[in-house]
Design a binder for these strands. Sequence first.
DNA 1: ATTCGTGATTCTTCGTAGAATATAACGGCA
DNA 2: TGCCGTTATATTCTACGAAGAATCACGAAT
Lengths: 111, 111
Amino acid sequence: MEYRLHGRVWIEGPEGTFLGYGRVVLLERIREHGSIRAAARSMEMSYRHAWKLVDSMNRQSREPVVEKSTGGRGGGGAKLTESGQRAVDCFWQAYQDYRDYLSNRSTQLDL
Amino acid sequence: MEYRLHGRVWIEGPEGTFLGYGRVVLLERIREHGSIRAAARSMEMSYRHAWKLVDSMNRQSREPVVEKSTGGRGGGGAKLTESGQRAVDCFWQAYQDYRDYLSNRSTQLDL
DNA sequence: ATTCGTGATTCTTCGTAGAATATAACGGCA
DNA sequence: TGCCGTTATATTCTACGAAGAATCACGAAT
């Protein structure tokens, strides 16, 4: 098995990429850490970049995937919405299916 | 159908990417034009880049995908080998199959 | 020997995506 | 009212890959 099929997938929305691997991991980290900043830090991503991704996802989703709050004791935070969790689940399902496909198709390469 | 599954595929070899969309198009252009330079020019790719891709493919393939000749009247050239043509065919086959998969899987997204 | 357009290779320049930095604005709470 | 850590946003800096330029090698035909 010297040659293998590799690939990437993402879900495209009205403005381009809506959900991809990195974006979904970010959503999960937000759920775990309770803020965009901490989530970004935990995966060594710049806050600026993380904020843009969240903004992009929220703009393309019917209902927001992340609810953000500013100010307050401790300085606000962010939380994954139910809709966001469903998006995460949907992506992982497609992602796993995709990996299975690549794995199977790899065995059929005649080189 | 607001959301769609998009993706990219390539065939991975010993040193990383072996065949991808751009690489295969390059091989076809080499077959059509008879030289790396003309092929690169025809697809607005720098010769330098094209040369690197051909080198990478040749190094990872059992038998060369492109035979190059230097010097001579007209200055040599390059031609796609039989092995190279088989590689091209193999990739397009996987690529088409891949597109079908994405298209079908797109309809099953529940968002 | 000269010519010609290619392959092969090195060095320099440049565009840009991302990181880093900076600074408001926010709003509960003590 | 001041403090705190976050969100929000603009600006600057930087690292890196691609592009471009510049050479040299090549060898068959004339």
